[in-house]
């Protein structure tokens, strides 16, 4: 566990939130990046070693097979020599078998050693892969925090500069609802007009174009009253 979240929480609670003060300094990001580069380098080397060791193991396995076959062959020869009563030849072949068996034992041991090394290197590769994943996650947390801070600063400056204003939640909600209501009313009116048929629609069009007058407005009433007085 890297404990990166605990570190970030401590930093955030620590009040490093004053304008211009970064929770994540550029140096920290550089260190995390370098750790990641080192770990990837380490991984490449471990994989290379693993490939070499596995190749050696395979070579030994082939050698063991070859020697086993030779030993079997020579055992056949020795038996044939004994059957022929040629003790001297049988002894010579037996000496050859002894030498082959020594070599065989050496190759078997080497194969076991390489196999053990390969197992250990595989575990090492997995360990480095986990480390890289952890570093990538840490770097992501640190960089995201950094980006959000910087973005927040830009947004803050934007509102501070008077280009826009920040509304309170209630204001925003009221304004949005009001707009939604108006839109609904407009749609309702259009629907009613549609339902009222073509005659009403024409009347409405004429009224909107100012050709016909709607019900007399206050101004017309006043004008009429003045005329009556005068």
């Amino acid at each position: 566990m890297s404990g990166i979240l605990s570190k970030m929480m401590t930093a955030l609670r620590g009040g490093a939130t004053e304008v211009g003060e970064a929770i994540v300094d550029a140096n920290a990001i550089r260190i995390y990046r370098q750790e990641l580069v080192d770990a990837r380098d380490h991984l490449a080397k471990a994989k290379e070693s693993l490939t070499e060791v596995m190749a050696e193991e395979m070579r030994c396995a082939r050698e063991v097979q070859r020697l086993e076959k030779q030993v079997a062959e020579h055992e056949g020869y020795a038996v044939a020599a004994l059957n022929k009563g040629d003790e001297a030849l049988a002894t010579e072949v037996a000496e050859r078998i002894a030498s082959l068996e020594q070599e065989l034992e050496a190759q078997r041991q080497a194969r076991t050693t390489f196999a053990t090394q390969a197992t250990s290197l595989k575990a090492q590769v997995q360990q480095i892969e986990r480390t890289i994943h952890a570093h990538e996650r840490e770097l992501s947390i640190v960089q995201t925090t950094d980006s959000v801070q910087k973005a927040t600063r830009s947004i803050g400056n934007h509102f501070g500069s008077g280009n826009s204003r920040l509304y309170s939640a209630r204001e925003s909600l009221d304004r949005i609802k009001d707009r939604q209501q108006k839109e609904q009313d407009r749609m309702q009116a259009a629907k009613e007009l549609e339902a009222a048929g073509p005659e009403a629609q024409l009347e409405e069009k004429l009224r909107q174009a100012g050709i016909t007058k709607s019900q007399s407005g206050a101004n017309e009433v006043l004008a009429r009253l003045r005329k009556k007085q005068g």
Partner: peptide, 15 residues
């Protein structure tokens, strides 16, 4: 119609 609630898009490291 929702000008009071702008959304801010920003690109962080991986997201």
């Amino acid at each position: 119609d929702r000008e009071e609630l702008p959304i801010y898009l920003t690109m962080a490291d991986t997201q």
